[in-house]
Simulated scan of single mutants.
Amino acid sequence: MKQHYTIRHGALEGVEVFLAVARRRNFRRAAADLGVTPSAVSQAVRTLEARMGAALFARTTRSVGLTEAGQRFLDRAGPAFEEIVAAGEAARDVGQRPTGLLRLSVPRSVVPLILEPMIASFCRAYPEIELEIAASDEMVDLATGGFDAGIRLGQFIASDMVAVRLTPSFSFVVVGSPDYLERHGCPERVDDLRHHACLRLRRSNGAIAPWSFADGNEAVEAMVTGPLIAHDYPTLLGAAMQGVGLAQTPRPVAEGSIAEGKLKPVLKGLAAATPGVFLYHPGKRQVLPKLRAFIDHLKSAG
């Protein structure tokens, strides 16, 4: 059976006043500490006592003391109120300066390309921020996963996210090892891929990603086959360098291996473009200082 729940309005109302009077044992001095009138303090205490159903203070013309109920309330409410105040200060601290835990969801292939060059300098610049990088190619829900932001290719970012560009647009490139291309030849048309071992990527939703090409202004997708399916680009790239087959990856992921001669690009005239890599987050109203610091540092490092 569904239980009815009623929010307790004003549960903390009057507690700070009670603690001030209990500390000072004097209504007038407590009022001075709080910056209010003595009558306001008296009224707040009377309201609190009425809500508690018990007198909290024993008052005479000369002194103010705690009743047994007041002492019990002080013993429990004092430490609890201090914790609430400390919690508020901690939350305010995170909202006002770069501090706290910054959690990012990032594809594995992006870590060496974008993050590794700036991690050390960021940690030195912001020693009060704990940077946590969850390297995964799964598309995660930032709020559910407890992440402050994510980094992804632009076409995979939901339209309701705030996106910050990290790289220019770039193309996808099909690559193979010199040994593989010597044994099997270079494909010259998309249709030629039917005769090649093509290494494929399985997306986080379970679907195998088709290979994308651009024939003039027309987008072309090819459903290829091959001996290996992986969940990330670095694995596909490593297999391609071992001569297992051809792989299609974002060009920045393969550039180093191409420059070293470990891989050769093919079908260059049919390369499909992608918008680039973006950092994204849901913070449309306010970006916390720790995330703002990270975004600014990324931009300056780039």
Rank of each mutant, 00 (worst) to 15 (best):
V21I: 08
V21L: 07
L12T: 13
F18I: 05
I7C: 11
A22Q: 05
P38T: 07
G14I: 02
R29V: 05
Q3G: 14
G10E: 10
T60Y: 03
G35P: 03
A54H: 07
R24A: 03
S42N: 11
G14D: 04
F27I: 08
R25S: 01
V21C: 09
L34W: 02
N26Y: 01
R24S: 02
L56Q: 03
D33K: 06
F18R: 01
Q3F: 12
V36H: 05
R25W: 01
E16G: 14
G53Q: 06
V41Q: 00
S39H: 12
V45T: 02
R46I: 08
R23L: 10
F27L: 13
A50N: 11
H9P: 11
L12C: 10
G14F: 00
T37G: 13
A30T: 02
L12M: 14
A54M: 08
A30G: 05
S42I: 12
A44W: 00
V45M: 07
S39V: 12
R23G: 15
A20W: 00
R28Q: 08
L56Y: 04
Q43R: 12
L56M: 09
T60Q: 04
S42M: 12
V45N: 01
Q43G: 04
H9V: 14
L56V: 07
R29T: 12
F18Q: 04
A40S: 14
A40I: 05
A30H: 01
A22D: 03
R25P: 00
R24V: 01
H4K: 14
A44Q: 04
H9R: 15
G10K: 10
E49I: 06
